[in-house]
């Protein structure tokens, strides 16, 4: 899906989301976790933006803040020209109808006491203008069929469906309000690989049929590469690199992106004898106490003094695409190949 040159559908600027850390005894606020620490991005109509990062990167909190499930500490979220962080409750409700979410765990996000049909129709109670009550039954059948479920199963309860079917039900529920944007938060991560592939195909079909815009959050880079037009890589609350899908996989310039890509398991490593793995040490630091300067520097093999002092801006580097590294550079590999060549990270 090529991005249209028109206005972005969703525009996020300098978004911060913080959570207080409270002492065990007196519940005093003793510090803050900066889960999202100054993130900006645009979502263009009809595109899929992949958001990748490891645990603690803030990608899920970012999604929850965009949709209003968490309150932004600062920054703006603009949808279709309306600024959401300062919107009135009525405006907010209208906007939320257009932005829906699919969660990782289809079981815990579906009410076990409601039937599939009730789950799908639930949102129409809050937004009665979308589908008139007399058409609920037909519309539920249509939605179930559209996501590959048997419409005659509308009377079944979530536990009577398999994991893959429950995720389809979660997708049907998300589509009930005819949204413009669907945020998929690790939507296929909990599924077995054969079922995961089925759901990925379904998401692609729905996008083609309904013109949906996806914000696709995942930790699995092969999945993101499969679905995304553009990819933003997050680390410890910040976007470290963003580019078109092809560009980020072929010409990553941020060391974290390079390490992340090289760590992706490939099914037939013997077909890529040149592929050299970059294994970075350590774990993601605590977002309650992020490193000064560049947040990745504690695990980075290129880190210099400047990295501890100056936070690198996310700006176009090497004339390619935005990357937040003082020492952004291409791997020595020939363009068009996986990471390879002479790079040997230390530490």
């Amino acid at each position: 899906m090529s991005a249209s040159p028109s206005e972005p559908l969703l525009s996020v600027r300098e978004l911060h989301t913080t959570f207080p850390i409270r002492s065990a005894l007196l519940r005093r606020v003793t510090g803050h976790i900066q889960a999202v620490a100054g993130v900006s991005f645009d979502l263009r109509p009809g595109e899929t933006l992949g958001l990748v990062g490891e645990s603690g990167s803030g990608k899920s909190t970012l999604a929850r803040t965009v949709i209003g499930l968490e309150k932004a500490a600062s920054g703006t979220v603009t949808f279709d020209g309306r600024e959401l962080t300062s919107a009135s409750p009525a405006e907010l409700r209208a906007a939320r109808r257009d932005i829906q979410m699919i969660f990782q765990d289809p079981y815990s996000s579906l009410n076990p006491r409601r039937t599939a049909g009730q789950i799908v129709a639930e949102a129409w109670e809050i937004h009665p203008d979308v589908v008139s009550r007399s058409r609920w039954r037909d519309e539920v059948s249509d939605l179930l069929a559209r996501v590959g479920l048997d419409p005659s199963h509308a009377d079944r309860y979530p536990h009577q469906f398999s994991g893959g079917q429950r995720q389809r039900l979660g997708i049907a529920r998300a589509l009930a309000l005819k949204p413009k944007i669907v945020i998929c938060d690790e939507a296929v991560s909990a599924l077995d690989v054969s079922i995961q592939a089925q759901v990925l195909n379904l998401l692609a079909d729905l996008q083609a049929d309904l013109g949906l815009t996806y914000l696709f959050i995942a930790h699995d880079l092969s999945v993101v590469r499969h679905v995304a037009d553009r990819v933003a890589v997050m680390y410890l609350g910040r976007v470290v690199e963003v580019a078109d899908q092809e560009e980020i996989f072929q010409r990553p310039t941020h060391p974290y992106t390079q390490a992340l890509l090289s760590a992706v398991p490939v099914p037939r490593p013997w077909d890529q004898p040149q592929r050299e793995s970059i294994i970075i040490g350590g774990d993601v630091p605590s977002p309650a106490d992020p490193p000064s300067g560049c947040r990745f520097r504690t695990r980075c093999w290129k880190a210099q003094d400047v990295c501890a002092q100056v936070e690198p801006a996310l700006e176009i580097r090497l004339g390619l695409h935005p990357s937040a590294c003082h020492f952004a550079e291409l791997l020595s590999a020939a363009p068009g190949n996986s990471p390879e060549g002479s790079l040997t990270p230390g530490g």
């Binding site: 690989v193 079922i195 995961q196 592939a197 195909n201 880079l221 092969s222 590469r225």
Partner: peptide
């Protein structure tokens, strides 16, 4: 079923 890093956007045949 495994998305191929080297063949993005190709439809999967699960």
């Amino acid at each position: 079923s495994i998305p191929d890093l080297d063949a993005p956007r190709e439809r999967l045949t699960p």
